[in-house]
Every structure is written in structure tokens, then in C-alpha cells.
Design a protein around this nucleic acid. Structure first.
Lengths: 130, 130
DNA sequence: GAAAGTACTTTCCATAAGGATACTACCGCT
DNA sequence: AGCGGTAGTATCCTTATGGAAAGTACTTTC
């Protein structure tokens, strides 16, 4: 009996695949989670605040990533009527639904780092020393 | 009063940042979550099984990503003593700790898609029609 | 002995992602 | 007039990512 050329799997898997692609498509890149995490903590931050808070990011990347997040309605951008014009970035109500996901991401990362320092530091690939 | 050139934030934020970088560093790329998700569902799968199950992946990518996952002890690779040599890939006990994260990712992706179809389809960037 | 199945690796290429640096433009202060 | 702060944009460049196609090597089946 020949193996089916493509086990199309159950619909549950197809939906899972699609959901993972969707989520990762929206949150792809090196900085989106950092920006969202910082905004969740800081509530309202200006462009320069974010630039200072997020270590390593440049203005080009910050600008581009904020535009992406705004397009997907995860972050709001409000131009304030102040003397030197300021812009307030904040997480939207919808963006806040990412909190559980960001928490899981953080929890796992912390546990991973602990599992290394706890063990004979066997696992060390993918971990940047800071 | 001059603004501090770098608000070094609280240690909690630094740890969060680091944790997010760690997690995303390990799980970066287009396919890792798909491979892990598929292996969690399928328990034990061969190379060709994965190639068939994961729509769109090529053998080069699959091979590379599996090596990465194996290096980080998230997936185990067992060469079986069968007539035509077969290899069994499975999620390790440690890899299984990613389940809550993958579930959150999936849940959010599904909710996102529903939020679009539920609304006047305002949000549509980042969503590929399937 | 040819086909087909296992599990990959290799090469070559195109595009995407991201960083460094510089620049615009506006305002307030001194 | 010049400095510093706001919020970005523009340009150039390098590296990372990932896909297509073919090749290797070994075995069983027809």
C-alpha cells in the first residue's frame, strides 16, 4: 500500500497552522514584541522615549515597526497639541489582548535561561550573554 | 530640568526584554512553530512525514530547522534500525513546555481572524487569504 | 536493473531584514 | 544665531532568510 502523497491532516491542524502564520506575520521582526511590551509597561510614550527605552533600536526601525503596529490596530498614535509637537504612542484595547501571549513568551524565556544556569550549561546556543 | 539621556528603566523590564530576545532567538524563522506544533500533534514523525505535513516547506529548510531545534533540546532525533533507514523526530519533554506558548499564539491568531470577518473587514493587512 | 522510497546535503540565487549615518523641519531658550 | 529637543525620512550597505533544483547514498520492490 502506497503512502498517500499528502496527508491533509485534520482541519484542526490546518486552522492551527493558519493561526500561527497569522500571528507571526503580524508580530514578525526583531522589535515588535519589545515595543509592545514597553508600551504595555509605560502606558503612553513618545517616539524619543521609546528610542531611549528600547536598547539597540534605531529610529528607522522604530518608525517602521510603529507604522506596522498601527496598521494592525495594536498601537495608537496621537499627535498632541503641545509647543514642540509631541506624539503619544499607546497600546490599543485590542493590542492589550496580546498580554497573555507576551507573558508566556517572557515566562518561557526566563525559564529557559534558568534551565541553563541550573544545568552544567549544556544548552547555550541561541543565548546571548548580556 | 534636562531629561536623562537613558532611562534605564526598572530591572523587571530589562529581564523581560532579555527573556523575549531569548525566546524569539530560539524560535525565530518561518517554520519552527509549525514544526513544533505538528510534532506535538503527531507525537513521532519521520522526515518525509514532516515534509508532507507542513505545507510549503522544503527539505533544506526542514533539515536546518530540525537541527536548530535539536541543538536547543526541543526536539529529539532518533535513527531507527529499520530496513530503509528511518528517523523519528519527536518533541522532547523540555520542548513540550512550549505548549502553552503555542496555544496562546494559536488562540490569538484565531481571534484575530475572527475579528476581521466579524468587523467590516477594516483590518486586513498581514492576513493572507487561504 | 529500473523505479521509488528513505533522509538528507549542496549549490545557487533572490529578496527581506536590519543597521549606520545623515538629513529635514519645526519650536523654544538664551 | 546657535544649541537642544521634538519626530521622523532618506540613503546606502551588509547580512540573514529562505526557496528551487539537483545530487548523494542506500534499500526494497517490481
Amino acid at each position: 500500500m502506497k503512502k498517500k502523497s499528502f496527508i491533509n491532516d485534520n482541519p484542526v491542524c490546518q486552522i492551527r497552522m493558519q493561526a500561527i502564520s497569522d500571528t507571526m506575520g503580524i508580530l514578525s521582526g526583531k522589535w515588535k514584541f519589545h515595543i509592545l511590551g514597553t508600551l504595555i509597561e509605560g502606558h503612553k510614550l513618545g517616539f524619543m522615549d521609546l528610542l531611549r527605552e528600547i536598547d539597540g533600536i534605531g529610529s528607522k526601525m522604530l518608525s517602521k515597526e510603529l507604522q506596522d503596529l498601527e496598521l494592525n490596530h495594536l498601537v495608537s498614535r496621537t499627535v498632541m497639541n503641545t509647543k514642540p509637537i509631541t506624539v503619544e504612542y499607546a497600546v490599543t484595547e485590542y493590542g492589550a489582548t496580546l498580554s497573555p501571549l507576551i507573558n508566556e513568551l517572557t515566562k518561557w524565556g526566563i525559564a529557559y535561561r534558568q534551565s541553563i544556569h541550573g544545568s552544567t550549561s549544556e544548552i547555550n546556543k541561541g543565548l546571548k550573554d548580556v
